[in-house]
Design a protein around this nucleic acid. Structure first.
Length: 594
RNA sequence: GCCCCGAUAGCUCAGAUGGAUAGAGCGCACCCCUCCUAAGGGUGAGGCCACAGGUUCGAAUCCUGUUCGGGGCACCA
């Protein structure tokens, strides 16, 4: 409809140009938007306001010219000039009634488009380190990333969903060492757990299972382990330093000690056990949350394939790497970053950043038309250096789009739920899902703009009332299903084609509002997709549900008049279909009974 | 100190490429089921769009500055 109107306007402008009214004026793309107010018709264009100056005419006068030059169309009931020079289009009732047939015919495909032209887009999201279970912060990234991916797919893109697994590097070694220490505690050894070790109780559980299978085969006395290690920094409960020390040096030395005392074989075994147990848990967690990936991309294979070294060499050849204080630096400041960054530490280990450069280069080389990263907002300082590296490697950094997601803050009984990663005292995604359910979690996570802090009201998410937007929308779906059951119980049947033949009977203002809302769905999906803003779809669905509830409250669907009843049933079924399609994109179920 | 993000109704938030009288939900005050699920609907009150300049036919939206929040500035990931 939009393109139809735009082409009518273009034809009118071309005619005016020939007539000399717009002689020699460059024609812009035609602005056309949904009228906010029904008084202003269905669509409005500001074209006359835009061209008024160049045409040296008053906007309203120009608008009149355009109106009279418009070709006739059956779709349009009337065209008004209003305000300073808006051209308002009022659609013929048949034009928006037609959407019912389109929805019923296309079914689950309604709202999907080919606008993306099958261009390949990669969406990388969550990518939490496999050092512990996902917490509620990761959950938001998961819901957001998964929905952005769904939306892009619906908009006609070929989407590749990917999780980058940080299974290499220092943090994983610290995890392996932490697991070993928990195991030793279980064996009865007494020592102080390192302050930089992973404190979470999940490691104890893995350690207990490990002990059950292997007994004391990995045991070493605490005394041998901690002998001559650099001192750890110890703090009291209030966070004050009790014993000064270097916790980084302490944990790095502890990792080395673990390697030598256990030997390579046994160390690897523990390392793999910790990694795989946690990664499996993350996989299950996400799967249960309705988040699926095409690929789990391993950082380790990236390093082992030599890609990291190759990338560093390329940077060096390009002249952007130098040595200083024993470390290798990338000259990111040459590309707008605040300062240069280390890619290889003094001790010879490449940094996480080095892997990330190689990973992003590899993404680009895989030939995606667009690459999207979903990151926690605390990583925003990281964006310039990754883009700098890509630029240094001769790639166009604009092909990478980094979407930042702010943290979610949980509220229970109006009080903030305390969380701190440091003490390992965080609410896991699994706990949240268990408490409020997948549907509410998925919806609440994407309800707000991603760069906005999210206040997650647990009580509201659990409540089964109109206050809860998830239930409100799902209930609209269930209500239509209920009407169909009632139809059955009354011994009536429905005739879809009879309904289609009598769509003109849908003349109530509530019905018009509902029809207009339904016809907006494809646009809602498209703008939500292109702007990477799932919340727009959530808001749309709430409005659609509201239009339906209002209608339902005012008029009966199951009337005695067969033609009217079938028309209304078709309208209701179309509404049900659109709600289902929208909820599916959000990863929320559309229940038939509530 | 430098950088990023935010500031819109009492609360939580929408307001795509600048457009008409700035919108929802909650909360508050009223009202609506002999009728398909009241798990619903309606009416009303409630606003110096943080502040000050600028850009133009027109600014919540764009630009500059100020104030107040949040985050980031590692040889951590």
């Amino acid at each position: 409809m939009k393109t139809h109107l735009q082409s009518l306007i273009t034809q009118a402008l071309q005619r005016l140009r020939q007539d000399g009214v717009l002689a020699g004026i460059e024609l812009p793309s035609i602005p056309l938007e949904r009228a906010r107010d029904r008084m202003h018709g269905d669509y409005a264009s500001t074209i006359a306001l835009m061209l008024a100056k160049a045409a040296r005419r008053k906007p309203r006068e120009l608008a009149e010219h355009i109106r009279s030059a418009l070709p006739a169309s059956e779709q349009i009931a009337k065209v008004d000039i209003a305000g300073p020079g808006f051209i308002n289009f009022f659609l013929a009732p048949t034009a928006y009634q037609a959407v019912v047939g389109e929805i019923l015919q296309r079914g689950d495909d309604f709202g999907r488009s080919t606008g993306g032209g099958g261009r390949r887009v990669q969406v990388e999201f969550v990518s939490a380190n496999p050092t512990g279970p996902l917490h509620v912060g990761h959950g938001r990234g998961a819901a957001f990333g998964a929905t952005v991916a769904n939306l892009l797919e619906a908009a006609g893109y070929n989407v590749h969903r990917e999780y980058y697994v940080n299974d290499a590097g220092r943090q994983m070694n610290i995890l392996a060492a932490s697991l070993w220490l928990r195991y030793l505690e279980h064996c009865g050894e007494k020592f102080r757990f390192p302050s930089n070790g992973y404190q979470g109780k999940y490691l104890r559980e893995i350690a207990v299972r490990f002990y059950a299978e292997h007994g004391g085969a990995y045991a070493v006395s605490a005394q041998r382990i901690f002998q001559d290690l650099p001192l750890d920094e110890i703090r009291d409960a209030a966070g004050n330093v009790v014993t000064p020390g270097d916790k980084e040096a302490h944990i790095d030395a502890l990792v080395e000690r673990a390697r030598t005392l256990l030997g390579d074989h046994r160390y690897r075994f523990l390392f793999e056990l910790g990694l795989n147990t946690i990664l499996d848990d993350i996989r299950d967690d996400l799967k249960e949350f309705g988040v699926v990936y095409d690929e789990w991309y391993s950082e380790r294979t990236l390093a082992e394939s030599g890609a990291v070294n190759k990338t560093l060499n390329r940077l060096r050849d390009a002249g952007y790497v130098y040595e200083q204080e024993g470390a290798l630096w990338f000259r990111s400041s040459a590309f707008g970053d605040e300062k240069d960054r280390v890619v290889e530490r003094e001790n010879g280990q490449t940094t996480y950043f080095a892997s990330d450069i190689a990973y992003h280069l590899e993404k680009f080389e895989r030939g995606f038309d667009g690459v999207i990263d979903v990151w926690g907002a605390d990583h925003h300082g990281y964006v310039p250096r990754v883009k700098a590296a890509l630029q240094a490697l001769g790639e166009n950094p604009d092909r990478l789009d980094v979407l930042l997601v702010q943290f979610a803050i949980l509220y229970r009984n109006g009080e903030r739920v305390p969380m701190s990663t440091r003490s390992g005292e965080f609410v896991t995604l699994r706990e949240l899902r268990g408490e409020v359910g997948n549907d509410a979690a998925r919806f609440f996570y994407i309800m707000r703009k991603s760069e906005q802090h999210l206040d997650f009201d647990l009580d509201l998410a659990k409540s089964q009332s109109k206050d809860n937007p998830v239930y409100y929308i799902q209930y609209a779906h269930a209500r239509v299903c209920s009407v169909l059951r009632q139809l059955c119980e009354k011994g009536l049947s429905r005739d879809e084609s009879r309904g289609q033949a009598h769509l003109a009977r849908l003349t109530e203002s509530h019905e018009e509002n509902l029809l207009v809302a339904l016809s907006r769905y494809p646009e809602a999906v498209e703008t939500a997709a292109l702007n990477h803003e799932p919340h727009q779809l959530a808001h749309y669905l709430r409005e659609l549900a509201n239009a339906f509830h209002t209608y339902y409250n005012e008029h009966r669907v199951l009337v005695d008049d067969d033609a009217l009843r079938d028309a209304r049933l078709n309208l209701s079924l179309a509404t049900r279909q659109v709600i289902k399609n929208g909820l599916t994109l959000l990863g929320v179920s559309a229940p038939e009974v509530m």
